[in-house]
Every structure is written in structure tokens, then in C-alpha cells.
């Protein structure tokens, strides 16, 4: 079955980020989005630890060891960038000042509930970080995740079974199989990977899907 590679998924998200946006990219898969955004767009990246105007990683051996991103990786500051303390940083996040956030997800429900901080694995001590503040605060919450788990179970469900990060916050879901909007009344499929039938997509999805009149094909390698 054809599916999108990670780079294609990131490219698809990047297309939806408008020039001029203040953007926070979550740790992991969402970080890739920053690497594939068109250089013609002027985007200000926010990092929860107190950076606006975050730039790419420094050259090896260069850079400031204390200038790191939320994933604790070394980064740089672009001209016009600024530093501020944690309380101000989370004011930006919670207070609706961030235009777009891209987050990873364990599960998303048909109402746009997001579970992305804890599973049912009790062997691990819990950790939450900034996920809950971002999910409730960003103007648009985009979720980037594989459509199913590694063993094929659906991650888009009528109700999340994992602990919630936040209820009814997700605007759009990007997977390796489809682009799906959370709309009043449920989930609306906008784009489907080329060659995958509607029934096949529904079989891999726990929640009931409806389809836009003009579903667009996602072509692997040409997103």
C-alpha cells in the first residue's frame, strides 16, 4: 500500500503554514517541518524555553551550549530574534499569541481531543512538559502522526483511550495516509494518499470519516 514518507508528511504540513506566522514546532516528528518550509516564507519560530526567532542548528563545534530548543538540541538565533523568561514564553503559548503549533500525537478523537503525553505504560514515570499549554493556547493546532500504530491499530478514534492532553483542540490531522479536518460534527477527509480507497482509509480509522466533495490525492514523492 502506498503511504507518505516522513518528509512528504512534513512538506504537506509546511504548505499550510502561512508566511508571517509565529510557529511552535513540537519535539520529534514536527521538528522536521521547519526544515522543509519554503525559504520564501518569513516565519518566526518560538521555543518554549524562551526564544522567538529560533534558527537552525549551529555548525559543528560552534554556537552557545546554553542556546538550545525544547528538545534540548543546540540552535541559533536569527536577526530580530529575542530571549525572554519562561513565564513570558508560556504567556505567549497559553494566551493565544502563537499562530500555529504542530504537535505529535498518540491519539486524536473525532471531537479533536488530543492524547500525546502519556500512554497506558505504567512502567514509565510520567512527563508532560509544555504540551498541555501549547494545545490549549495556540490559535491553530495541527497534529502530525502516523495513521496507525506500529502494529496497525488506529490512532484516530471516537474517544481517546490514553490520558488526554486537552479536549477539542485539534484543527487538522496530517498522517501518512490522509489530511483530515476536525469540523463540527466530526472528521472531514480533505486529501488521501493516491491509490487508497475510501473504504480502505475508513478500515484503518477508528472514528467515522466523512469525505469532502473534492478530495485531493496526495502523491508520494510529489507533495
Amino acid at each position: 500500500m502506498s503511504r507518505l514518507a516522513l518528509t512528504d508528511m512534513a512538506r504537506r504540513v509546511a504548505r499550510d503554514i502561512p508566511s508571517g506566522a509565529y510557529v511552535n514546532l513540537g519535539i520529534g516528528m514536527p521538528t522536521l517541518v521547519g526544515q522543509v518550509v519554503s525559504p520564501e516564507k518569513e516565519i518566526v519560530y518560538h521555543s518554549e524555553n524562551g526564544i522567538l526567532g529560533m534558527g537552525p542548528a549551529p555548525a559543528p563545534g560552534e554556537g552557545d551550549p546554553e542556546l538550545i530548543n525544547a528538545g534540548k538540541q543546540p540552535v541559533t538565533l536569527v536577526p530580530g530574534g529575542s530571549f525572554f523568561h519562561h513565564t513570558d514564553s508560556f504567556m505567549m503559548m497559553r494566551g493565544g499569541h502563537i499562530d500555529v503549533t504542530v504537535l505529535g500525537g498518540f491519539q486524536v478523537s473525532e471531537k479533536g481531543d488530543l492524547a500525546n503525553w502519556a500512554t497506558d505504560d505504567v512502567g514509565h514515570p510520567p512527563a508532560v512538559g509544555g504540551a498541555m499549554d501549547l494545545a490549549v493556547g495556540a490559535k491553530r493546532v495541527l497534529v502530525l502522526m502516523t495513521h496507525t500504530t506500529k502494529d496497525g491499530r488506529p490512532k484516530i478514534l471516537p474517544l481517546c483511550t490514553y490520558p488526554l492532553t486537552a479536549a477539542a483542540v485539534v484543527d487538522r490531522i496530517y498522517t501518512d495516509l490522509a489530511v483530515i479536518d476536525v469540523v463540527p460534527g466530526g472528521l472531514l477527509v480533505r486529501e488521501v494518499v493516491e491509490g487508497l480507497g475510501r473504504d480502505e482509509l475508513q478500515e484503518r480509522t477508528g472514528a467515522r470519516l466523512s469525505f469532502a466533495d473534492d478530495v485531493v490525492p496526495l502523491v508520494p514523492g510529489a507533495v
Binding site: 518554549e48 513565564t87 514564553s89 497559553r94 510520567p126 508532560v128 512538559g129 509544555g130 498541555m132 499549554d133
Partner: peptide, 15 residues
């Protein structure tokens, strides 16, 4: 003992 607090809440509680 662990008290887990969302990061923004941790900061704002101290504020």
C-alpha cells in the same frame, strides 16, 4: 514523591 505539573503552570505558580 513526584508532583507533575504542566510546564506553563509550573512557571505561573511561581510567578
Amino acid at each position: 514523591e513526584l508532583e507533575l505539573v504542566p510546564q506553563g503552570t509550573l512557571s505561573e505558580r511561581m510567578r
